[in-house]
Amino acid sequence: MTITAQIQPTFEAWRSKARELLRHGVAPENVDWVDASQTASLLAEEPSCYQTTPNASVKVPADFLRLAANVCAHTDERRFDILYRLLHRLTIGGEKHLLSMPSDRDMHQCNAWARAVSRDIHKMHAFVRFRLVGLNESNGREQFVAWFEPEYRITRLAAPFFEKRFASMDWSILTPDACVSWDGEKLTFMPGMSRHDAPSADAHDDLWRTYYRSIFNPARLKVQAMQSEMPMKYWKNLPEATIIHDLIGSSEKRVCTMIATPERPVKPMPDNAYLRTLHQRRTKS
């Protein structure tokens, strides 16, 4: 008989449900995983549908839990199903070495999802842009807000990094799926918000664009290399992305100007004691 496992789409929810199913020895093909946030039906789940008494809890390697945490943050609807099959094979199925088999189909799929999620987390750490919105008058802490659109449900996984780094600021990161804020004491998670709830600019964005424009070298244009690391889907929330087009367009002219510049002659050595010692060293050797 098929059991419907209806869960909120989080790692914690999947883990506790999977643990319960596993203790009853439920085979993966008999579970139908349903994302409760995606279904309107309030299909109440039969609480005592198991035909066996539970076994003692099963141990799984820490590596599996790390993998599962990332996989659960993915949005592919097959993820809970395949993850449970992997867990079942790893434990009841006795395939203990599965985690070191990247060529196994289920491992391959889960690794691919985990990799995509971990890349998304990394990009969130990189591309979140905080905007200063004010000062907390009671304690003098600066308050920052950022808007970010990750590809997967990674807000919880990405948040601890910001806590460590920006512990002395008050900050919030708003995303369509979940929001997180830090007040110096604890992280608070809230439901997603809309882009309009976030500030759209910061007084420093212009200075940052000035830096971005000046550090770019027009003589070695490699647009593809840029895009493979900073895909266009992230551009809409990056203040510097507004000038990328102009930088690319004007680079050819800038290089032509360099080529057309007459070469500068060598100027005579200025009278400087330190410089003299350097040149004496040269003539000695």
Binding site: H122, H125, A126, F127, F161, E163, K164, R165, F166, A167, S168, M169, G184, Y212, I215, F216, N217, P218, R220, L221, K222, V223, Q224, A225, M226, E229, M230, L238, E240, I244, L247, I248, S251
Partner: peptide, 25 residues
């Protein structure tokens, strides 16, 4: 890191590239 609430910042582990310019750097 700065979890002691004094100062700001953290390092350790992987570096982070916060942006890329059209020269691919």
């Amino acid at each position: 890191d700065s979890r002691d609430g004094k100062g700001i910042g953290s390092t350790g582990g992987m570096g982070i590239c916060h942006s890329y310019t059209p020269d691919g750097r």
